[in-house]
Design a protein around this nucleic acid. Sequence first.
DNA 1: CGATTCATTGATCGAGATCAAAATTGGTGG
DNA 2: CCACCAATTTTGATCTCGATCAATGAATCG
Lengths: 253, 253
Amino acid sequence: MHAFRNRLAQYSDIPDKVWNVIQDIGTKPGHFKAGADIIRVGEITDSLFIISTGWATRFRTLEDGRRQIVNFMLPGDIFDLQALARMEADHSVSALTDVSILSISPQKFIRKMRESGEVSSAFWWAAVQEESILREQAVRLGRRSARERIGHLLLELQRRMNGALGSNAEQLSLPLTRVDLADALGLTPVHVSRTMSAMRSAGLIEEHRGLVLIRDRQRLARLSHFDPDYLHLRKLDYSRFSEDTPDVPSKVV
Amino acid sequence: MHAFRNRLAQYSDIPDKVWNVIQDIGTKPGHFKAGADIIRVGEITDSLFIISTGWATRFRTLEDGRRQIVNFMLPGDIFDLQALARMEADHSVSALTDVSILSISPQKFIRKMRESGEVSSAFWWAAVQEESILREQAVRLGRRSARERIGHLLLELQRRMNGALGSNAEQLSLPLTRVDLADALGLTPVHVSRTMSAMRSAGLIEEHRGLVLIRDRQRLARLSHFDPDYLHLRKLDYSRFSEDTPDVPSKVV
DNA sequence: CGATTCATTGATCGAGATCAAAATTGGTGG
DNA sequence: CCACCAATTTTGATCTCGATCAATGAATCG
């Protein structure tokens, strides 16, 4: 339930201390049903949110109905630092699953940031990571093939979920339809389906209900050119947990 | 020469005051030749930059040479607020033209931010705008056709350049090759060339050397679904300056 | 179980990629 | 001012990845 604490542990040596300060700010719990809007275009949001459970998505809808998912928000993710600027949202955020959140008042948040350098650098790290993920999304959309996009996104989400859960699993609970994936990856649902079938046949992944199992991380990472540096995680040594040694030992794949 | 001041004027009523504070922080001028690296992957940058003249670009290069330009940095743009986190760059920034910059020490910057609410909200606005532009880039790459991408980017750049120069011109000095455009738009240079030829024949734009003239803003905006809300500019009434009335009068196209 | 949503499969199409060559443009130095 | 060279843009011919259209097959859920 302390997804944010877990995430911080990927970066800071003192996640508990920071986490205590956060709680001390005074957070208000909230809940959104799957499908509900969390932030609507054109509205001004006047609080920050930390997701404690569930998935949300940030997207833009074009006039003719096309939709582009800009990123996924997982447990432990914080948004919108934008809210501090009291500007109208130019995009929407909505709940993909049932989502529970903690909301924080911007005023209190800013005060705490000023008081503690450790806290503010933790948040700054989170903001930088988020922007980095967004840049990688642009690269994925602009310069990768369908198969690369899917593999790359799966590996990213798995990494991020492990970070949020404090786990180290090869499997990922993925509450996304082919339409969601397509809208995130700039593809059609039909093509996502076909490509993922091929990936299953190739022994790269397995799927059971909403569970995705990464069967061959090495190969999947290679073929999708996944390099997790952009997540700015401290080097968790994944190789310790896997049978085969990576071909580039110095780098964690 | 005060591109940053001009940009602020799009947002704040007191650009001069903010600008004075910036200068007061102590900025150090610098210069990069066209093609030079400003930030290299893997390095930690320890200062902030404001571009005063010239264009720079932020991009990622994949192992096999594919390149994706993530965004363009124009006069008045500030980067990298990331530098405050002292994290390794996961992408590169390099000068497209000769670029002159002002660099600011992060420590001094943070101190000033704390001292003045007006200054910090001005910078916050700039950061939010930048992120917004990045999101729009993702939408462009994921869900728009080649013609829409090109039209949309041209209109964005024109708007941003006008903001930086404090001007209101229908023409844009565009120091980009077809390869640059292709790398920004997720296309091939060949296709960019063909599509732009078609746009010229259609009377949408004109090109002379590095100058692009927007011939038919209305039509170009409509066909590329350009809606400048994401730039979070205060509503500059462009319709005052154009002959024909927009079909949606309330919105500035 | 029916009914609705979601995933898969098949057939065909088309926007943009690729490969290759020709035409412009822009320096640079004589 | 002109001739030459390198970089850039354009044009042409062809191919391919992913889109589109349409139908069938699971799941999931009252």
